[in-house]
Nucleic acid binder design. Structure first.
Length: 872
DNA sequence: ATACATACC
DNA sequence: TACTGGTATGTAT
């Protein structure tokens, strides 16, 4: 029975290792032979063993899926089928064929650039990358089965004459910039997907183009440069308008068209051809393009006539459906190796199979997955080019020869943090979640994450967290050492890209008088809400989470704080669920706490009782979350360096055009009847004037010193161009990196753990803040450290809030306007990236109400806008 | 929130 | 000798 699965391995090879001939330029290869070489090169390696393991995992998933399938009754299937059909009908109603979406893709980009710049490479099979990994290969090399993502040493076995050229990203970036300038002429809002690829919406351009004179559609030849002998040589006749359907103007040349000019027509195809022509003239590189009514189809189309070709799919339902029928599912963006295999096990390999099996698929796959399948089977996709979204994470990782001492690992970890911090700085980012990624010498990948209550950005801050995560892993493994081949550090959960005060938006949100949502910005509010759902409780007197998170530097602080406020059961339960962070520092914490907290724990319980018996009234009932702050997108430096950042500016008092009439003072909690921020600030100043507070002492101390830095051998390849052969040279990167290393050594041993120490001190103080004497509790503010006169907890909390907020309020006073972006449509991603998959374990809940669409869950993350429409 | 897997370039 | 690096997202827990 379980053998059924293995049938999917075509020739007995691991499907995940075998040649992927899905891409252009790989037709008619001797797959058998190529796979044999690949296998022979890999067999027995740790990499191979790991691939084997993963393959088996996938097979198990498939087996499970098959078991599930076997239990589906005829009736269930019928019912599912019916629902799928209803949904298809709904989706059909939303079909939009009115846009001209174009996907442009440079041909073998990196390789083409290198060939352009080194003519000797032109006739040779070559690839860009290293002996370890190739990023691109030229078409000549593809005939041997050499392709991107293949290690160079295997490629060499497939094609001993292969020339491997090291990557030169700066060059590719520069060329990419040139190409993007041309893209912008056709769609200023085009979306780059990588250096060599972009989606464009030609619709508007075409509308204008209809009234353009010939001169505007004429483009000159520059050099006789035809970058490569591809099939469409760019002769003037190839671009003659008469060759194309709706280009009426075969009219006499007018308006100064010089002899070497090429006139392009008014049709989409002509416009796209023109764009490609201009790209080639400007860069001596060719591009391919797909023209279709949506992004999903355009992407597939751009591959159809690659290289140096284009394909237009007519915007009719019939043409689309025909096109989709014969499309292998693997060609669709978002359906990768694993999905392909799983679908294949269900007898689905083309999109027509997809539509036929939709009922079954809806029972076997997750909602997200089968909705995507459904759309694909109907030829639906995103009909607009989504604005590039803000980045969600930033990371850096490195592969190296085995590292197996804690010292070296920690050193490397710090280096990664340095790199990451530098990158973060470039984009002015701060994030709350730090993730450490480890891959051992057996290629097993592990990730460990920790979210801290404040946003971090500096080397020391990031390293403080990453080091902890790493140390925990080292400790867990000991006495065995971790044997690593890769380490990476990632930051996510960004607070805001142009505003480093983590809770600025919450402050601003607070200042907005509560209620009245202007419809146009609802999505943004929802987004913020999702990002930081508890921010609106910021100034809520009691009980509440600590108001200003950046003033709490460790989770322990939060715990203590919550205990004081009698919340230990709900939020602060640090006992049952200790984080890595907490565990790792428990020891140190205990030592410090023991000396400072000799009275024992009784007081804390006591305090909790006090607070919980007398919950104070909330002065702020509804907490406005009107922080209309979305940072401008500085976006990915490499991919979007051209993108013009949107300036973030708007006034606190204007929200979607609506002006506020009054603001609530965060100090006295009274309404101030003004919408003038200056007036309001004056009021706050006055309120603050009386309150006593002093700066929070910040102890900086040193602990873990840096260890010996060590050089990782790096390899690089050098092409010996005179011989045309690739000479691989191993080079130690020591000379290049040495100075930087010295620097780093100096900086590391100073105060990398300042943050932790500081926060521990604060923790200790916090624990002191509720002490008892004979008369009852004495309240000490954990921020200003002053004993409070009153024993009224409401007043005490009020005071603490005040202390915590001083800094931000001071900051606020310096501002007359607050950051806020123009309302933007909260949009849906068109990208088909990693998603889908997974048979759904529990499918019972759906299907209850067959005709009504699965209510929420679509929540805007649906891959394609049509889904959004459907669930509206 | 965390861990892991899939996907894309 | 040698199998990447960066980002996003989906699923399970």
């Amino acid at each position: 029975m379980e053998n059924e699965v293995k049938v999917t391995n075509t020739e007995g090879f691991l499907s995940r290792m075998a040649l992927n001939d899905n891409k252009a330029g790989m037709e008619g290869l001797d797959r058998e032979k190529i796979n044999k070489i690949i296998m022979e090169s890999s067999k027995g390696s740790r990499f191979y063993e790991n691939e084997l393991k993963r393959e088996q995992q996938v097979n198990q998933r498939i087996e499970k899926m098959m078991l599930q399938k076997a239990q589906i009754t005829e009736q269930q299937l019928k019912k599912a089928q019916a629902q799928v059909e209803r949904m298809a009908a709904e989706l059909e109603k939303g079909r939009d064929l009115s846009r001209w979406i174009v996907h442009v893709d440079m041909d073998a980009f990196y390789a083409a650039v290198e060939m352009r710049d080194c003519p000797e490479l032109k006739d040779k099979p070559m690839a860009v990358g290293s002996m370890s990994m190739l990023t691109t290969s030229n078409y000549h090399a593809r005939k041997y089965g050499v392709r991107a993502a293949m290690p160079g040493f295997i490629a060499k076995k497939l094609c001993p004459n292969l020339v491997i050229v090291p990557t030169n990203f700066d060059k590719y970036r520069a060329v990419s910039g040139e190409v993007r300038e041309i893209f912008a002429d056709y769609d200023p809002h085009f979306q780059p997907m990588s250096l060599d690829e972009a989606y464009l919406d030609f619709t508007d351009h075409l509308e204008q183009r209809q009234s353009w004179p010939e001169s505007s559609r004429t483009h000159n030849y520059h050099a006789n440069n035809s970058a490569s002998g591809k099939k469409e040589t760019l002769e003037p006749k190839d671009f003659s308008p008469v060759l194309f359907e709706d280009s009426p103007s075969s009219s006499p040349d007018s308006e100064g068209v010089n002899t070497t000019g090429v006139v392009f027509g008014k049709s989409v195809e002509e416009a796209v051809r023109e764009m490609r022509f201009r790209i080639e003239q400007k860069t001596m590189l060719t591009a391919s393009a797909g023209i279709a009514p949506n992004t999903m189809l355009a992407k597939v189309c751009s591959d159809k006539n690659k290289p140096n070709g284009q394909y237009r799919l007519p915007p009719t339902r019939e043409a689309v459906m025909d096109f989709v029928q014969n499309l292998p599912v693997r060609k669709v963006c978002g359906i990768g190796k694993v999905s392909e295999k799983m679908l294949s096990a269900l007898g689905v390999s083309s999109c027509s199979d997809l539509s036929q099996q939709m009922g079954l698929l809806s029972l076997m796959f997750s909602e997200t997955a089968w909705h995507h399948f459904m759309q694909v089977s109907l030829g639906l996709g995103s009909t607009h080019i989504p604005r590039h979204e803000e980045r969600k994470s930033m990371s850096t990782e490195r592969t190296f020869k085995e590292l197996n001492t804690a010292e070296k690992q920690l050193t490397l970890c710090r280096e990664l943090c340095e790199d990451l911090a530098a990158d973060m700085k470039k984009e002015n980012l701060k994030g709350k979640t730090v993730t450490l990624k480890l891959k051992n010498v057996n290629f097993e990948v592990k990730s460990r994450a920790l979210t801290v209550p404040y946003a971090v950005a500096s080397v020391d801050e990031i390293f403080a967290v990453a080091k902890d995560l790493l140390q925990t892993e080292i400790d867990n493994e000991s006495p065995q050492p971790l044997r690593l081949r890769l380490m990476g550090v990632r930051i996510s959960a960004f607070v805001s890209s142009d505003d480093k005060k983590p809770l600025q938006k919450s402050i601003l949100g607070f200042l907005q008088p509560g209620n009245a949502d202007s419809g146009s910005t609802q999505g943004i509010n929802q987004k913020l809400e999702k990002e930081n759902p508890s921010d609106h409780s910021l100034f809520t007197p009691l009980p509440a989470r600590p108001p200003l998170k950046q003033n709490f530097q460790r989770q322990e602080d939060i715990s203590v704080w919550n205990k004081q406020r009698g919340l230990e059961e709900s939020q602060a339960s640090d006992e049952p669920k200790k984080s890595f962070f907490q565990r790792a520092h428990a020891e140190r914490l205990k030592i410090q706490a023991a000396s400072a907290n000799t009275q024992g724990e009784g007081q804390e319980e006591n305090a909790a009782d006090i607070t919980s018996t007398g919950p104070p009234a909330h002065k702020l009932e509804e907490s406005p979350t009107k922080a209309h702050e979305r940072s401008s997108t500085a976006s990915d430096p490499s991919e979007n360096d051209h993108a013009s950042p949107v300036e973030a500016h708007a006034s606190t008092s204007s929200c979607g055009g609506k002006a506020s009439e009054s603001l609530t003072c965060p100090v006295c909690f009274k309404r101030v009847e003004t919408s003038d921020l200056n007036v309001f600030n004056t009021h706050i100043d006055k309120c603050l004037y009386d309150s006593s507070s002093k700066p929070n002492p910040c102890t900086v101390s040193d602990s873990d010193s840096d260890m010996d830095s060590q050089r990782n051998p790096k390899e690089c390849e050098v092409v010996d161009k005179s011989s045309g052969e690739c000479v691989i040279v191993e080079v130690l990167a020591s000379s290049r990196d040495a100075p930087r290393d010295e620097q780093h050594r100096i900086t590391t041993d100073s105060n990398q753990t300042a943050l932790l120490i500081d926060s521990e001190n604060k923790t200790v103080t916090s624990q002191q803040s509720l002490s008892c004497n004979d008369k009852g509790p004495v309240l000490i503010c954990p921020v200003c450290h002053l004993t409070q006169d009153s024993d009224d907890l409401i007043i005490f909390n009020h005071h603490v809030d005040l202390c915590l907020n001083q800094e931000v309020l001071r900051e606020l006073r310096g501002r007359t306007s607050s950051p806020m972006n123009p309302p933007s449509v909260p949009n849906i991603k068109a990208r088909g990236r990693g998603r889908l998959l997974t048979t759904q374990g529990k499918k019972a809940k759906r299907r209850d109400t067959p005709s009504s669409p699965p209510s929420k869950k679509a929540k805007g993350v649906g891959p394609l806008n049509t889904i959004d429409k459907f669930f509206r």
